[in-house]
Amino acid sequence: MSDIKDILAKVPLFRQLPEQAIALLSECAEEVSFEPETQILTEGAMASTFYIIKSGEVSLQVQQPQSIPLIIQTINANSLLGLSWITPPYQWSFDAITLEKVEAVEFHAACVREKLSLYPEYGFLIMQSILEVFLERLQATRTRMLDIYGVTKEVIPGD
């Protein structure tokens, strides 16, 4: 268990958390690894886990009935994979598939939710860290919606 605590303490997302909050999280966590092309999350399935990626990359995908899947985002090392475990109905919205071998810390969502409720002083700090992920992804999504690489007009001298 102390190994997990050390690992979590080094995750940038949890850098502001006190030792006690890290200890709470570590009680719900274990190290896992996945081979390339492993489906970790499945759209519509129960969101009973979430992950901190230690190494490797995971692709968040959405299936298309008449075509190959679209990639929504790739999740890199030190990032959090899985947000739907936080609020009901606790169901994944997308598939998550490993692009390469992935080492991760797996959290048991029900256990984490219980800790957050039982220890609200640390629960707030943990949720604040996770909110950082929401905010970053919301801002990134908004920016991507701007289609910033779109065509600009040529300016003709004299115009």
Partner: peptide, 23 residues
């Protein structure tokens, strides 16, 4: 390399270029 839009044939990243700074 990262792109805004890709299908699953793409082996690079998908997301904002700023996300590559961490790599």
């Amino acid at each position: 390399e990262t792109v805004d839009i890709a299908d699953s044939n793409w082996r690079g990243s998908v997301g904002l270029v700023t996300e590559l700074i961490d790599k």
